[in-house]
């Protein structure tokens, strides 16, 4: 609960207002696009923003939370400065993807889905990046690193501070 208290004092609700306005009149049909825009604006879905969204739109907070938790894209915690996406598609899997994923976990000390304590990295796995010709492949922010071997991971991650 401490987090939501600090949220109250630190979160700017102006972006939320603009997002809701752009969808007026809001119906539950636009719930997912609104949540996507909130995440774009805030980097994640802060609880206080979702509660406020419920109040302003009349959509029950439980419904908002229920929908948001269903989809992998939404996150409820602040994210690291850099995002590592490790592809776990089939082509990457048969070309040694699992070793890459394990090496990333070992190198930053965080499992997939987590964020390092210093907020440097958020590490995610994705179903497929659709760049099978680069397999095995990861993305760090918007940069692709393809044809990887586990031994290159540390050197790649050092480029992101």
């Amino acid at each position: 609960m401490n987090r939501s208290l600090s949220d109250i004092t630190s979160v700017d609700l102006a972006p939320l207002g603009r997002i809701i306005e752009s969808h007026a009149p809001v119906s539950s049909n636009s719930l997912i696009p609104i949540l996507q825009q909130i995440q774009d604006a805030y980097g994640y879905l802060p609880k206080i923003v979702l509660m406020e969204m419920g109040k302003r739109t009349g959509i029950a907070a439980s419904q908002i939370y229920g929908v948001a938790t269903f989809y992998e894209q939404f996150c409820f915690e602040p994210r690291g400065r850099h995002t590592i996406k490790c592809c776990r598609g089939t082509a990457c899997h048969v070309k040694g993807g699992p070793e890459i994923s394990e090496e990333i976990e070992r190198a930053i000390g965080v499992e997939a889905g987590g964020t390092t304590e210093d907020m440097r990295f958020t590490f995610e796995t994705v179903a497929c990046l659709g760049t099978c010709f680069l397999a095995p492949v990861i993305m760090v922010d918007n940069d692709y690193y393809g044809h990887l071997t586990a031994s290159r991971i540390e050197e790649i991650l050092e480029r992101y501070t």
Binding site: R88, G89, T90, A91, H93, A127, C128, G130
Partner: peptide, 11 residues
């Protein structure tokens, strides 16, 4: 919603 891992035709 091309979700199959290893598929990139629709993309």
């Amino acid at each position: 919603d091309e979700g199959d891992p290893g598929a990139f035709m629709d993309r």
